[in-house]
């Protein structure tokens, strides 16, 4: 037993001291005032919740994360269904090809959308040639749409994998039974397939929604002047304004949102099981 503790302790110590303890230090700073002699105060939190700007910002961040999550579900569900139930050959290859971009640098991918969505860029010229848009201006870059597209691009592999795993477990004979009992395809989907794959959707939603809440690179690079979300405002507090205590408070509110949404969705998931 002693040996086991000895083996486990280095990793556990590092994680405890440098992942858990710092969060409490952050909590501590979030209650400090900015005055020359720092004292304990609720000011930072009151500031956040009493100003319309921050509440709007919070709602904007949540809305963006919800939109990204919903788009991911809509795109990923058919893909996962195709992999699990339609094609027989080449499943693993498709899975691999979906996961690969996931393992490439987040910054490089954000940058690739910057190049791709540019006014007069490759996509704009292509859409112009086939007559979908009148000029070679896209008008997407530096709006929140661009940030949403990039976030979907980054996180939807998660959603494909979790839904795929749920559908893969779903026994084909259940679907056959529904069909032979006379259910239309749409009814089979609504009453059999969708409910049985819901745990996959919820797990995927956790994996997409939570990192979206804390994102700041994509909104910063692609979202333009109006692209600010909680993440970018926290970054500003620490790097531009040096309001560290207030920044800590916002970061802690973000952490609370992350933990609450994870907890809520895990509850949903347990209900399913």
């Amino acid at each position: 037993m002693k040996k086991k503790v000895l083996l486990m302790s280095p990793a556990m110590f590092i994680l405890f001291a440098f992942a858990i303890v710092p969060l409490f230090i952050m909590l501590y700073y979030s209650f400090l005032s900015d005055s020359a002699v720092a004292k304990f105060t609720l000011e930072n939190y009151i500031n956040f919740f009493s100003k319309g700007f921050y509440l709007k910002l919070t709602w904007k961040t949540i809305k963006m994360s919800i939109i990204v999550t919903l788009i991911c579900i809509v795109i990923a569900y058919p893909m996962a269904y195709i992999m699990a139930k339609v094609i027989e050959k080449g499943k693993n290859l498709i899975l691999l090809l979906i996961i690969i971009p996931f393992w490439t640098s987040q910054l490089v991918r954000a940058y690739s959308w910057l190049v791709f969505l540019r006014d007069g860029g490759v996509l704009a010229q292509f859409l112009n040639k086939i007559g979908l848009i009148a000029t070679t201006d896209m008008g997407i870059l530096f709006t929140s749409k661009a940030a949403i597209i990039a976030l979907v691009h980054i996180f939807f592999p998660y959603m494909v994998i979790t839904i795929y795993m749920a559908l893969e477990k779903l026994d084909n004979s259940v679907i056959e039974a529904s069909k032979s009992l006379g259910a239309k395809p749409i009814e089979t989907f609504r009453r059999i397939i969708l409910p049985l794959s819901r745990p996959g959707i919820i797990t995927g939603a956790i994996l997409v929604f939570v990192p979206c809440l804390g994102s700041f690179v994509e909104p910063r690079i692609l979202g333009g002047v109006n692209g600010s979300v909680i993440g970018t405002v926290i970054e500003d507090q620490f790097f531009e304004i040096f309001g560290w205590n207030f920044g800590s408070a916002i970061a802690f509110i973000l952490l609370a949102m992350v933990l609450l949404s994870m907890g809520g969705m895990s509850l949903l998931l347990n209900k399913e099981k």
Binding site: M12, L15, P22, I25, M26, G214, G231, V258
Partner: peptide
């Protein structure tokens, strides 16, 4: 749960909290 903690907390918060440490 301790090992997977850094996967669930946004890196933004991890970075900030280490800066505050």
């Amino acid at each position: 749960s301790v090992v997977m903690l850094p996967l669930t907390i946004p890196w933004l918060i991890m970075g900030l909290s280490l800066l505050l440490l």
